Simulated assay, not measured.
Amino acid sequence: MKNIISILALTLFFSCQNSAQTSKKQDAVINADPIEVPIKNGKAKAYFASGCFWCVEAIYESVKGVEESISGYSGGHTKNPTYASSNTGKTGHAEAVEIIYDPNIVSFETLVDVYFASQNVTQVNGQGNDRGSQYRSILFYQNEAQKQIILKKKEALAKKLNVTIAAEVYPFQKFWLAEDYHQNYEKLHPNHPYIKNVSVPRLNRFKSKFPKKFLKEVTH
């Protein structure tokens, strides 16, 4: 009986994920023209989705030139997504981060390198045990130049590793800010079991293999 229930639950789960990503509304998002966020006070913004935003926020804030990493939602077709609604898999949104950075210190190309170096590039709809379309990997581009950077790096990595890279490539449309309690979660909750057992190990794996010249001198 438990096996039957599990099968039914999984079927429903994946049907929700698939319908969220293949609907006409979602197609409109994927095929839209990108929206470019202007540089303000010398700072640019970039957007990435790579599993739980608690993890990704901490990873990018370890990079020189990154002023701040903000948790939120992007890539979907619904307005005003919340943590609860995105977790249904029906909004099309993924947990994402807004990276505020100094382009004179760190380039968009390097931020894309950080992205691929900090995840399991072959995992579809998730990272680790965080699974579902809300945890899928997406790189967002704001113009044609960024799109080509992403596509070339993705193609090169696929050839180098001889694998299919799971990350999707979307035109950036809008970033929805996550609830206050999600912001700076790793810093504010260092003893949380998820932070200790998932977020910090993922951060340290990234830092162990990424060139040190790009990283801030911060210990975890």
Rank of each mutant, 00 (worst) to 15 (best):
Y181R: 00
T91D: 04
A156F: 11
F214M: 09
A20I: 15
N18G: 04
L10A: 08
V163M: 05
A20Q: 09
N18C: 08
V106R: 01
P201I: 10
K212Q: 12
T78S: 03
S74F: 08
I59V: 15
N18R: 13
P211W: 02
V112M: 03
Q134G: 06
A166I: 14
T78I: 14
S69H: 03
H77L: 09
T22P: 11
G132F: 09
F53D: 02
F48Y: 14
Y135E: 01
S118W: 03
G65E: 12
T88R: 05
E186K: 12
H189S: 01
S50L: 12
H192I: 12
S208R: 06
L139C: 08
Y141G: 05
V66L: 05
A156R: 09
M1G: 08
F13E: 06
A158L: 10
K79E: 15
E217G: 01
V63T: 02
G51W: 10
Q146I: 07
L215D: 06
T122F: 06
P34K: 03
E155D: 15
L139N: 02
K216I: 11
A46R: 02
L177P: 02
K40V: 15
Q119L: 12
S137N: 05
T164A: 10
L139F: 07
E179L: 11
P34Q: 06
I59A: 00
A84G: 01
Y194A: 02
L12R: 03
K153D: 00
E144V: 10
K147H: 11
K147F: 12
K187N: 07
